[in-house]
């Protein structure tokens, strides 16, 4: 993100912030929907994150830290949206509209479905840790800054999330083996 855009926006330049929003929104939405696995909630979280970013922008001391700062705001908004999701307790359809369609094998699709089931069962905090570490590629320290928790907490969340995912995939694999033996027979 260009530093001068951030500085202009900090001085109240709405046009500059519009440019920032335009450049950021695809990425913000991508991250939010990965964490939330719900397009409506992701849209709510992104819109709120942009509003909060604009509202509190003058409190950002170092414009070079803007991206990490905005990610932190987005994560908080995702948590809030996830809370809303839990309260609604409604069955939402997974919106995959706009998802990248990649060449894929049947087995790979099955694996991702298993991962998806496991991922959806995780708490929002664990999902967020997985996204910022594995997808955004942030180090523990960088993830800690974005998630607003100590680096040690990031590690423990990743461990818990990975263990939960591994257990899910193991269970799926075990359930497939008898079916395969049955098919061979």
């Amino acid at each position: 993100m260009q530093r001068d855009l951030v500085e202009r926006a900090q001085r109240g330049d709405r046009e500059a912030f519009g440019t920032i929003a335009e450049q950021s929104i695809d990425h913000l939405y991508d991250v939010a929907q990965l964490m939330l696995r719900d397009s409506d909630l992701a849209k709510d979280a992104v819109q709120e994150a942009l509003i909060v970013t604009w509202r509190d922008l003058r409190a950002l001391r170092d414009p070079d830290r803007f991206t990490a700062w905005m990610h932190r705001i987005l994560v908080r908004c995702v948590y809030r949206a996830a809370t809303h999701e839990r309260r609604q307790a409604a069955v939402r359809s997974l919106d995959v509209t706009g998802a990248a369609v990649l060449p894929d094998s049947t087995r790979a699709v099955e694996d991702r479905d298993q991962v998806d089931r496991g991922f959806r069962r995780l708490k929002p905090e664990l999902r967020a840790a997985l996204v910022v570490h594995h997808y955004l590629g942030l180090t523990y320290d960088e993830a800690a800054e974005v998630l607003g928790v100590p680096a040690g907490t990031v590690k423990s969340r990743l461990n818990r999330a990975t263990a939960a995912m591994r257990a899910e995939l193991d269970a799926e694999a075990r359930s497939r083996e008898p079916m395969a033996r049955e098919a061979i027979r």
Binding site: D26, Q47, A100, Y135
Partner: peptide, 26 residues
């Protein structure tokens, strides 16, 4: 595994209208 999963589920662009509604609110 996670990277593959996230890449497969990622989106290239935000839904239409999201930017406009966000800027209106801003």
């Amino acid at each position: 595994t996670m990277l593959d999963y996230f890449v497969a589920r990622s989106t290239s662009r935000a839904p239409d209208g999201l930017l406009d509604s966000a800027l209106t609110a801003i």
